[in-house]
């Protein structure tokens, strides 16, 4: 069983980190926009150094498929907007039930891609630093659309399709750069008022996957019950993996849903609670893995944190990842190398 991560990592320790200081210095001297962050060579150099540090930390913790270690300026939504510079990014909104906030997009026109997002260059840099497989994570187009301030032509099927095309182009670029895995974060679709929008997510995933047929595209769904959406997800053409949350309130319903699991799709099993500082015991993790493996073969299952470890203090995040890796690798009594 392989161990993977799920998005970006916390960086500060005792309140300090060179990237935090660099962002502070940057925003004091420029108007902070996604393009300004992209153009700032000093800032990007510190981001690149941070990637090296976080790649090493993940490997040391025992992960098999790593995040690129990319830490965006401000947040992922803010940085992704660099790919469509005609769009405005607005004030931060609370994301899901987390106490974290992301800059939402103002979609007042059909978006047009004008260059790749910083995720792609971050992948290239990470790939130059390690031979370990990488899984860059992108918030998905549905999440951006769902949280956007949509007006006029920006609130149309054409606008959503254009967003999906932007993402497909980025994922194709990632694949061309050698990415074997890509994670698309679309947890919001599991929220009650968004479930009816599943067809939009399916449309997006099929389009994105078709742009990178040799890359395993994983859709990650944290903080929610998959329920009756499991089979529709598994039927999306090109879907390579599905990430589900097996912590807290979602463990029992998502384990129950797995009885319908079918096909060769990878399950990214979020078994370590990325939002609790309590480190799970190996016995706890094995118990959940046992329950999962009743329906999903271990070789098709990746052990993972339930969502990004960003919600934890840095020391706790890597302690949790190390425990997860140790437990998953001992689960089968052997470690299956990628």
């Amino acid at each position: 069983m392989l161990v993977t991560t799920s998005g970006r990592f916390p960086i500060v320790s005792n309140g300090q980190h060179p990237l935090r200081a660099a962002v502070e210095e940057w925003r004091a001297r420029v108007t902070p926009t996604p393009e300004a962050a992209w153009q700032d060579t000093e800032l990007r150099a510190v981001q690149a150094e941070t990637q090296a540090e976080l790649l090493a930390a993940q490997s040391e913790a025992g992960a098999d498929i790593l995040d690129t270690g990319y830490v965006p300026v401000y947040d992922e939504w803010f940085q992704m907007a660099r790919a469509a510079p005609d769009l405005e990014v607005a004030a931060p909104l609370r994301y899901l039930d987390t106490n974290t906030y992301y800059h939402h997009w103002v979609l007042d026109k059909v978006p047009k891609r004008n260059g790749e997002s910083p995720i792609v260059s971050a992948y290239r840099h990470a790939a130059s630093l390690t031979d370990v497989p990488l899984k860059p994570t992108l918030f998905g187009p549905y999440t951006i659309y769902a949280y956007a301030d949509r007006q006029g032509p920006g609130d149309t099927p054409e606008a959503f399709a254009a967003l999906v095309d932007m993402w497909a182009a980025d994922v194709a670029a990632l694949a061309a750069a050698g990415a074997k895995y890509v994670q698309i974060e679309e947890s919001v679709v599991l929220r009650p008022k968004h479930r009816a929008d599943f067809p939009l997510v399916a449309q997006a995933v099929e389009r994105i996957a078709s742009a990178a047929p040799d890359t395993t595209v994983v859709v990650h769904l944290a903080c929610g019950e998959i329920g009756d959406l499991l089979l529709p997800f598994l039927e999306i053409p090109g879907l390579g993996g599905l990430g589900l949350d097996f912590t807290d309130a979602y463990r029992a319903p998502n384990l129950a849903a797995l009885k319908q699991w079918r096909g060769d799709t990878f399950l990214q099993a979020g078994i370590a609670d990325a939002r609790s500082i309590r480190v799970e015991t190996e016995a706890d993790l094995h118990e959940t893995l046992n329950a999962i493996s009743a329906n999903v073969p271990a070789e098709r299952c990746w052990a993972a944190p339930s969502t990004t470890l960003l919600h934890l203090p840095r020391h706790a995040a890597f302690e949790k990842l190390a425990k997860l890796a140790s437990a998953a690798h001992s689960f089968n009594g052997k470690r299956t190398l990628p």
């Binding site: 916390p10 320790s13 947040d75 906030y101 919600h311 020391h315 706790a316």
Partner: peptide
Amino acid sequence: DPDAVWVLDN
């Protein structure tokens, strides 16, 4: 906790 947690922006 000595390690502060990201909330928004910087």
